[in-house]
Simulated assay, not measured.
Amino acid sequence: MRNISDIIEGYLKAIIEEEQNGIIEIKRSEVAEKFQCVPSQINYVIKTRFTEERGYAVESKRGGGGYIRIFRVQANSRKELIEHILKGLHNGASYTMAEDIVYRLLEEEVISERESKLILAAVDRTTIHQPLPERDLIRARILQAMLLTLIYEQLD
């Protein structure tokens, strides 16, 4: 059974897909009221499910007339998408960040379900048995090598 976070995520993504420009503005309290949850639940969903690694940008304005603007960041090509992801890996990568990257690559049909499982197995904490921050740096290097391979594979 899906939890409330999954339901809210699905709702917001559906609204984004309906918009021609891929941008939505929401009021946190209105969405919370719709799903009968606390506004912090909406914050949690936006913070964890609408990340840059998953292909979204979020802006917010606080106050009485405040809003949260969520928009989908579209790459012009698979190569451009991978290059954009590579730029974000220079300071290391947490496992959550790696999951988000893999999720986006799956969603954009750059990799298959099987490839996603292989990537996640390679960057898992039990595979990279090192203390932090070394583990995050090694994880980023593994991801970079895999992503570079995907770029060059597509050029063949």
Rank of each mutant, 00 (worst) to 15 (best):
residue 3 N to D: 15
residue 8 I to A: 00
residue 8 I to V: 12
residue 9 E to M: 08
residue 10 G to P: 01
residue 10 G to E: 15
residue 11 Y to R: 03
residue 11 Y to W: 07
residue 11 Y to N: 00
residue 12 L to Q: 04
residue 16 I to V: 14
residue 19 E to K: 15
residue 26 I to R: 06
residue 29 S to T: 15
residue 30 E to L: 14
residue 30 E to K: 13
residue 32 A to P: 06
residue 33 E to D: 09
residue 34 K to Q: 08
residue 38 V to P: 00
residue 42 I to D: 04
residue 43 N to D: 14
residue 43 N to M: 15
residue 45 V to C: 06
residue 47 K to R: 13
residue 48 T to W: 12
residue 49 R to P: 03
residue 53 E to D: 13
residue 57 A to M: 02
residue 68 I to H: 00
residue 69 R to F: 01
residue 75 A to D: 00
residue 76 N to L: 10
residue 77 S to W: 06
residue 78 R to V: 09
residue 78 R to C: 04
residue 79 K to S: 12
residue 83 E to H: 13
residue 87 K to D: 11
residue 87 K to V: 08
residue 88 G to P: 03
residue 89 L to S: 10
residue 89 L to I: 09
residue 90 H to F: 07
residue 91 N to C: 07
residue 95 Y to T: 01
residue 95 Y to I: 11
residue 96 T to S: 15
residue 97 M to Q: 15
residue 100 D to W: 08
residue 102 V to Y: 09
residue 102 V to D: 01
residue 105 L to I: 12
residue 109 E to H: 09
residue 110 V to D: 08
residue 112 S to F: 10
residue 113 E to M: 10
residue 116 S to C: 01
residue 117 K to N: 10
residue 117 K to G: 14
residue 117 K to H: 13
residue 119 I to C: 01
residue 126 T to K: 15
residue 133 P to S: 13
residue 133 P to G: 13
residue 137 L to S: 11
residue 138 I to W: 02
residue 139 R to H: 11
residue 141 R to F: 00
residue 141 R to D: 14
residue 151 I to S: 03
residue 151 I to C: 04
